[in-house]
Amino acid sequence: MRTVVPVVETVVETPSTVTLRFDYPPEAAPGQFVMVWLPGDDELPMSLSYLEGPRKGVTIKAMGGSTRAVLGIAAGAPIGVRGPYGNRFDLAPRRILVVGGGSGTAVLAPAAEAAARGGASVAVALGATRASELLFRDRLRAAGLRVEVATDDGSEGTPGFVTGLVERWLSTEPFDAVWTCGPEVMMAKVAALARARGVPTFCSVERHMKCALGLCDACALGPYHVCTDGPVFPAERLLATPDFGRFHRDAAGRRRPL
């Protein structure tokens, strides 16, 4: 039960990140993902970075292997799509701090836009290694969101990790929820900062994934399966597992340090 569709458009977002747009009508909610099949290569879980209407989009960081192959995909190339799968961000909170690290912003952008459209006050802290790797900064500003930036090398915004921005924002404004996606060490730190202020954090996490149906156990994370129980989890549940921020499982199911 998958659909083969042509890629309608590719957009190079940053030197290492590309967006594929394609027409795939099934309705999707902020936080959900699809399995994208690059024929002859692999099929990977990808969060939807565009989900309004039939023209969906995924935004992928080329980290090696098949994700690198994504950079070579041209408009017109066929891809297989199944889903959407997984749970969603709860759009009820009225004051939301969104914290994106690197390509993690891919899943956060449509969620932040949807929350803002629903009347929530949304602030965004974006972090990246350098200015050129800041994902969706202009898109989020264009949506009317307050966006602040931190870069590891100081080439834009506050120098250093995004957690510095988070600390400042949490100390100057009240928030009902923090949404975050990025490196797990970053998410764990963000969750700890938010907890100190009594603000619940929701993390979108990534694990090796095969079936996406809650069967094969490849994406096991503590007692959870990221494909069916996630990918969005309350941070305290993740922090109660021995793996979050520390271990993942490789394709063979071996626990390995992150």
């Binding site: 039960m1 095969k210 063979a252 199911g253």
Partner: peptide, 25 residues
């Protein structure tokens, strides 16, 4: 590691096809 994806396919009527390739630690 098992085979690359796709390793699984849902068919009509609840049937499922898989070739995981015996992934195991």
């Amino acid at each position: 590691a098992g085979y690359p994806n796709p390793t699984i396919e849902l068919l009509d009527g609840g049937a499922m096809l898989n070739a995981m390739g015996l992934p195991n630690p």
